[in-house]
Amino acid sequence: MVVDSSTPAVTAALVRVEDPELPGAGDPQVTVLAERVTVDGRAHGELLAPQIQAVLAEGGAAPGDLAAVVAGTGPGPFTGLRAGMVTAAALGHALDIPVYGVCSLDGIGHGQPGRLLVATDARRKEVYWAVYSGGVRVDGPAVDKPAAVSVEVDAAAGDGADRYAEVFGLPLLPPRYPSARALAALAADRVRAKAPGETLTPRYLRRPDAVAPGERKPALP
């Protein structure tokens, strides 16, 4: 099961990761059996679990058939990101199967040719960004104002790259949001090796907004 909630695209996908050693293993070795993506930045908590249920049903699988959970670990707006990651963590815990984290931006940059800027919307007029060379992340992830992202690339991808296209001035490539297939492919070696699962750590990249209180205002005039 692949889960990503780092962008407004709430994503759940049932994926088969084939063992290349097995006779008859297909190529590509990662097959998306069922996928649900709903673009709604304010309803991650409502949408995700029903989508997981739907892809299981469509793929003819029961929760107990799952071998692993792959979760996009952001960066992404905190509340939505956590909804997906805690879902993945609890699913793995309940089913006693490993959970593997993958940087969500890699779900956009994976397998892309040339030098690519991946940028997703970080709100507050900022983007989460990373740079890929031949599909491999070589810089980032980080969060900055679009104008402060100074990188040598051929093209850009992601909803943040689209939103601030005028600032970046780069040709825009798909996909707009992390691809479940790419996230699965990035975790495929761990899935095949039955590697130990991990304790997921969200890539917040920003500290919580909190300021220690200043001097109390006097109540007397």
Binding site: G45, A49, I52, Q53, R82, A83, A90
Partner: peptide, 16 residues
């Protein structure tokens, strides 16, 4: 935001 963590987890446990 705090409620959402518990509710999302509870749904995953219920579903699983």
């Amino acid at each position: 935001g705090a409620l959402l963590v518990g509710v999302a987890a509870a749904k995953a446990y219920a579903l699983a």
